[in-house]
Amino acid sequence: MSKEHESGMSVIVKTITRLTVGLIFLFGIYILVHGHVSPGGGFAGGVIIALSFVHLMLAYGKEVSFKKLPRAVVHFFESFGALMFLGIALLGFTSGYFFINFISKGQPFKLFSAGIIPLCNIAISLKVGAGLFAIFLALVLLKFEAEKRK
């Protein structure tokens, strides 16, 4: 057995996780980029992306998960997503209004359409994904700390 099998759940869970976690991640990205043409969007996509990392952490334990996504990166993305959203909103001032949709809207129901909305979706998903994962981490680490003290 390799070293990564020492912590976390059983082999079955790990194998299934290895197969599905990428798909879950991709599905999150799909939901995210089609947010402006179909139900879904930044929040739902971000939640699914965060869930893929939560999935990884539950199956493999926190070390593997941290190797893929260190805490500093999570915190960076959380602030960065918010700043990006704010930046897009502020760029609207160049066209005269805060939050104005200043990019050409394109044709409806095409992937590249709707102006700033896809960009906003990406920013939201970064913020939500990182934020949700950070909440999960905070609660989990609190538990680990408490167990260590005992």
């Binding site: 939500v128 905070a138 609190l142 538990k143 408490a146």
Partner: peptide
């Protein structure tokens, strides 16, 4: 409703965090 759910998520997460600290 979506917005309200996000807000309630934040509140609940904070409440759970405080509850865990209280237990500690």
């Amino acid at each position: 409703v979506l917005t309200a759910i996000v807000i309630s998520l934040a509140t609940t997460a904070l409440l759970v965090g405080i509850a865990m600290r209280i237990y500690e």
